[in-house]
Design a protein around this nucleic acid. Sequence first.
DNA 1: GTAAAATATCAATATATATTGAATCAGTGA
DNA 2: TCACTGATTCAATATATATTGATATTTTAC
Lengths: 105, 105
Amino acid sequence: MKPRCCTNKKNSQDIRKTAEFLKIITEENRLKILCILQEEELCVLDIWQYLTLPQNLTSHHLKVLKDFNLIASRKAGLRVFYSINKKVLNRYSKLLNKFLNLCGE
Amino acid sequence: MKPRCCTNKKNSQDIRKTAEFLKIITEENRLKILCILQEEELCVLDIWQYLTLPQNLTSHHLKVLKDFNLIASRKAGLRVFYSINKKVLNRYSKLLNKFLNLCGE
DNA sequence: GTAAAATATCAATATATATTGAATCAGTGA
DNA sequence: TCACTGATTCAATATATATTGATATTTTAC
């Protein structure tokens, strides 16, 4: 009587996906980026200045987030504005809660 | 007009805590462990067999989870039984949702 | 007391990931 | 065209983390 998450194929796929998602948001700076983007759309310049991170490092973290589809970008002249991809974020967020909140209260 | 999570001290402490929590549960095997422990209390033997992990690696992951207080252990003869620490898990889970679910919808 | 079973620990290694610095690219305005 | 600004890319390095193998610890049964 192996537990469901070890036997059920869909369940273990979901766990893998969730773990991938977690890997993306675990990094503190990326978590912060998600957090400040929830208030408003921002360009890279704003972001690295708010977080006091090097500009290229910020760009790198943004790329990681974008590759995972958690944020979207829009070019406006010299600037690139980033915004949260709410649908995707919520989807993963729900998936995660499925595993964490099983424990009822 | 820096965003709140960059200026508000409590907020940025919470982000740090959340990131630490995420580091613990990001690892796929640990996430699985949390998952199977939600169904029932289990001993190390069960766990490593279910997950087909080496025994010592399982022990190590359990220690990481326990050091973070996400699980508790109870000795019974040769065996050590592990169980979820629901209160702590829920606390962090809520903290995380505070950052992920800000995005309404 | 000795052997076996379940678990934990430790040092060594492998692997992944973040960070840095330099170089590059793409728009903008003189 | 040229210089400037904002952003990205790339290679090199640093750092953290998972994994492995060997060893130790604890409890039980003989």
